[in-house]
Simulated scan of single mutants.
Amino acid sequence: MNVRFSEYRPSYALSPFVQAYYTGDFNLYSEDNFVQSVVPNGCIEMIIHLTHDHCELVKSESWGKSPEFTLIGLQTKPYEVKFHDMVQIFGIRFNPEGIYNIFGVPPALFTATFEDSSDILGVAFKDYCSWLREAKSIQQKIRLTEDFLLKKMSDHAQDFDYVRLASETIRKHHGMLTLEELVQQVPISPRQLQREFKRRFGITAKEYMRLSRLNAIQQYMQGTEMVNLTELSYDTGFSDQSHFIREFRQLAGTNPRTFLKQRDNFLTLPVNLE
């Protein structure tokens, strides 16, 4: 395996908005043009590079070096990451409502693309990144991160809103509910919910349901070597296996059997949906 990856849970106060903190060492053997396909997980990834070398990402159909501090928006299709040397990072994985509730920034600003975090989040964020790089241990990095995020969250306190409730409900049900069932738990009209969800996150509630269901599938696949695809398709709410395969291919870029055989070519980061 050419990747080393570790995850750390956020504090209780931040857990509604932050899925995880993580460290990653990519391209451990310094291969030239080491490429990984990333399966979308319905989250926003904040990547802080700790080394001079960065990964490369595609933007406007061209490969380019990612920013020093990269903010990767919600994705509905797989995307590729390329490495030319070993790259070390510290990352923060946000639920989509996390960026909005902590920084006051709607994720729709950078859906299906990536941006320089400094341009989106400002000078205070650059100062935080400088402190983070100077921290010697992962415990220090997490403590600095928690202090920074809690301070920003207090600065951008948001009233409870229906879009947040809808996204939390979708995750709670692993995406396995209809729009009608969702509206029964979120007192807002289907049309208004779809409009507000799209305006805030840049994707529809139905698209977020599909991403959440794919996460449930990814979690199952990571937890066992022997995957019964027929059983899995029914357990995750698909009417038949062909529907399951079609949906999986659209979101992961290949069919489930090929994916299982070539796991090392994919960077899969399934999130905690509970």
Rank of each mutant, 00 (worst) to 15 (best):
F5G: 00
E7K: 09
S11D: 12
S15I: 08
P16T: 00
V18T: 00
Q19P: 00
Q19A: 10
Y22V: 02
T23Y: 06
F26K: 07
F34P: 00
T51F: 03
H52P: 05
H52G: 13
H52F: 11
C55D: 11
K59R: 11
S60P: 00
S66P: 04
E68K: 14
F69G: 00
G73E: 04
Q75K: 14
T76M: 05
P78C: 04
E80F: 09
H84N: 14
D85M: 03
F90Y: 06
G91E: 01
G91F: 00
G91K: 01
F94I: 01
N95C: 05
P106K: 04
P107F: 07
P107K: 06
A108R: 12
F110H: 07
T111E: 11
T113N: 07
F114I: 03
D116Y: 05
V123W: 14
C129R: 02
R133P: 04
K136G: 08
Q139S: 15
Q140Y: 09
Q140L: 10
T145W: 08
M153Q: 15
D155G: 08
H156Q: 08
A157H: 13
H174Y: 13
T178L: 05
L179S: 07
Q184S: 10
R191Q: 10
Q192D: 04
R199L: 08
M209T: 09
R210E: 15
L211E: 01
S212W: 06
S212A: 15
Q219I: 11
G223C: 08
T224R: 14
Y234T: 10
Y234A: 14
T236D: 04
G237I: 08
S239I: 14
D240K: 12
F244G: 04
Q250N: 13
L251D: 05
L251E: 09
L251I: 10
N255Y: 12
R257F: 12
T258A: 12
T258R: 14
L260P: 05
K261G: 09
R263M: 11
N265H: 13
E274L: 13
